[in-house]
Write a protein that binds this DNA or RNA. Sequence first.
DNA 1: GTCGGGTAACTTACCGGTCGGTCACTTTGG
DNA 2: CCAAAGTGACCGACCGGTAAGTTACCCGAC
Lengths: 222, 222
Amino acid sequence: MSNHAKATRGVGTKGMPRKDRERLILEAAAGEFGAKGYARGSTAQVAARAGITKPMIYEYFGSKDSLYLTCLDQAGTRLVEAVASAQRGPSDLSRAVRTLEAVFRALAARPHDWELVYDGTLPAEGPLYEAATGYRRELNRMGAVGVAEFLRASPAVEPLDADLGTHLWYGTVSAAVAWWRHHPEQTADEMAARFERIVAVLCPDLWAAPGTTGGPSGTRST
Amino acid sequence: MSNHAKATRGVGTKGMPRKDRERLILEAAAGEFGAKGYARGSTAQVAARAGITKPMIYEYFGSKDSLYLTCLDQAGTRLVEAVASAQRGPSDLSRAVRTLEAVFRALAARPHDWELVYDGTLPAEGPLYEAATGYRRELNRMGAVGVAEFLRASPAVEPLDADLGTHLWYGTVSAAVAWWRHHPEQTADEMAARFERIVAVLCPDLWAAPGTTGGPSGTRST
DNA sequence: GTCGGGTAACTTACCGGTCGGTCACTTTGG
DNA sequence: CCAAAGTGACCGACCGGTAAGTTACCCGAC
């Protein structure tokens, strides 16, 4: 019943404006696919979550793949932007903490985004897989920059080691997100603080004296 | 036509002895489920891999769940044994390297074992899920001991931090295994060496002077 | 030796159910 | 009254699981 949206609605309009319905369906789809994954999530369930029936899904999005792809694009774009914004600043270990914090903040608003991008039940080929891989690669690439700069400190590491290190970093982020799902009461800031403490134990020297900035963060109380 | 196996075969035997066929099916099932996961793997495909047809699978194992469970038990037992054997020895960071090396050695013989235990397409409840969770918990528990001893060095870490640390460690192992799948030409020893180099860059002080043993391992050349 | 016959191994064909996707129809608002 | 929104009913494909029939092997009888 808003004032200006009504003006654009033509004859034969019934129920909800198209844009609103679209958003509603996308929200429902993100919930369904985020919880059950692409393979086990069903379009009928998405429709039920949105309070409509299955043919409406196909009226609006044409296919299950297209529906998932729309959710995936939203989630992937948001995550990439969040991580990209965390790449600014000093290039020491504190960047890892900032990146993780940015991911947590983004996921706090939309908890299912991570699962949409890293859904393990996606088909092993096809456009859907390629789209997801594209976002994953983009996120990984940004992580790789930090890892490479970090590992450059030692001449013993081979190029392949840096690639492995990048994947280890991804595994760390992924595990942190998974742990968070089982402890939803934690805020994004608390999660970042926990990670910070663990890093501090792992490498106290690299952490305490990163160089010019005089300290990676002000949150440590020791 | 072998000499001793023939003696045990009774009347009505046709084709392959039961034990051999059983092993053949299990091998095929491990390949199918390891590659596609429980949900997407089909019993007909398992049968095709084993060179037989679907009803034989049910003759031998009764149900898809039972078949998967048999594979899972083999894989889980092997992995738990491998990790347990690596827990002996000094309790510093070198234990992490030893653990990872043990996992790699176990997986070198049977590459699909990891995916069977950590299959993301398993149902979210039921005996199959509980069995997989049991192995995961057992593996995690052993990892948690090492992580807890390690984090105990700092009084700032809270109990929940240790739990998070355990999951981060699991994420690291998981990522290393995933990376290995994309670089199959690497041997288990090479993988362990790569991980060792990365750890050395991350925490050189904890690594170089672990205390009484005079050094975590003899493989470092620096 | 060879010839049934019993038994285990194996297959073809099918059932019930679910899911992605579609069509003809009804409802609703302008 | 008309067009868009929305729905019940259906289709084909696929999958887990099953029943009934066929094939091959061993063994004992003659």
